[in-house]
């Protein structure tokens, strides 16, 4: 039944599930980060840098941000569909939003790469 709903015949169901799954990933990441910060309490530049340095944390951060980009894309698209009635304007706004998200992805990748 659930698998049936996720086939190509119901693209909306896939988007719906994507929004929920990415939300769960981000929620888990936030809880994990808060716990890690509370345990390690990095103070000062060296400690802060060491805190962010482990490869798995950088990888997790990148993957979570990819989830965030998908989640934001769906959310902002839904909001614009409700409030921006002009289809042409909405198309441009959506393109702008997509460009911004792509730039942010590259930006974060550069930040994490250069640690």
């Amino acid at each position: 039944m659930l698998v049936d709903l996720l086939t190509k015949r119901y693209p909306g169901m896939r988007l719906w599930l994507t929004q929920r799954l990415t939300a769960l990933v981000m929620a888990g990441y936030i809880v994990l980060m808060v716990l890690l910060l509370l345990i390690q309490q990095p103070t000062g530049y060296a400690a802060w840098r060491a805190f962010v340095s482990p490869w798995w944390l950088r990888l997790a951060t990148m993957l979570v941000f990819i989830c965030l980009a998908m989640h934001a894309w769906l959310g902002i698209r839904d909001v614009m569909r409700d409030y921006v009635k002009n289809i042409i304007l909405r198309g441009y706004l959506q393109l702008l939003m997509e460009i911004l998200l792509a730039v942010y992805l590259v930006w974060l990748a550069l930040i994490l790469w250069n640690i």
Binding site: A72, G75, V79, Y104, I115
Partner: peptide
């Protein structure tokens, strides 16, 4: 809904804070 839009708009600020905090000790 509103908080979702605000968080989206704040993404560059968060990225800038992360980047500046990691650049070097002076920026930190």
């Amino acid at each position: 809904r509103l908080s979702g839009v605000v968080l989206f708009l704040m993404l560059p600020v968060m990225l800038w804070i992360l980047q500046t905090s990691l650049r070097d000790e002076e920026n930190y």
